[in-house]
Design a protein around this nucleic acid. Structure first.
Length: 198
DNA sequence: ACAAGGATCCTCT
DNA sequence: GAGGATCCTTGTT
């Protein structure tokens, strides 16, 4: 790929919604696989009844309350590895969920990990991103701003961004369930559940 | 120690 | 559009 251009830890030390919007177009890299981030969701501090921080700091969510710029990976429905990026200051539990990506490099590896599938179905959904990238809960706490292993690099800013409601959080209070904290690159085919984005 | 439910994906209809 | 897979985290007893 191009020049090494890791995002600094300071990039992540602010509100999750701001980090989420700016992560669009950036690159996730893990070994031969390089992905462009195309869709994200912000889970914010301090008041968000959809966020895992709603029970306070627990064993699982402790990394969310730690330093920004680290991975927060958790298991969903017993089988999906969900990759998040920790934001905000220490002791503030917030993160950005990576929902969809587009392939940049390592397509053979991506397709192999995704069962030989082709096209947008490869990477449009958070469980798919985790599988294609080859991450699991053992990556939780891994610093993304240092070289080695899973990394986040700079990338071209998108021309236009769409926002909409977050997906799969019907249990949250209305003001959080309906908040437009999901962001995607406009006109990208690599976006899940396009309905609801505007 | 237990029961409940989940920031999803795939297959089939 | 509906349902099952699959197991960990959490709150409660």
């Amino acid at each position: 790929m191009r020049e090494v251009s890791l995002l600094p830890q300071s990039f992540y030390r602010r509100d999750a919604r701001e980090v989420a919007r700016e992560l669009l177009g950036k690159r996730l890299r893990h070994g031969p696989v390089v992905l462009e981030i195309t869709e994200v969701e912000a889970y914010v501090w301090p008041d968000d009844s959809a966020c895992h921080n709603r029970f306070g700091k627990t064993e699982r969510t402790a990394v969310m309350f730690g330093p920004p710029g680290r991975a927060y990976v958790y298991l969903c429905y017993g089988l999906h590895q969900m990759l998040n990026v920790v934001t905000n200051e220490v002791d503030e539990g917030a993160a950005v969920l990576i929902r969809s990506c587009a392939p940049v490099d390592g397509l053979d590896e991506i397709e192999a990990r995704r069962g030989g599938k082709r096209g947008p179905v490869l990477l449009t959904g958070p469980g798919k991103v985790g599988q294609a990238l080859g991450v699991d809960t053992s990556f939780s706490g891994h610093p993304l701003y240092r070289r080695g292993g899973l990394e986040v690099h700079d990338g071209p800013a998108p021309a236009a961004i769409l926002a909409g409601k977050r997906v799969g959080i019907d249990y949250a209070r209305p003001e959080h369930r309906d908040a437009p904290w999901r962001y995607a690159i406009a006109d990208s085919p690599w976006v899940s559940q396009r309905a609801g984005l505007g």
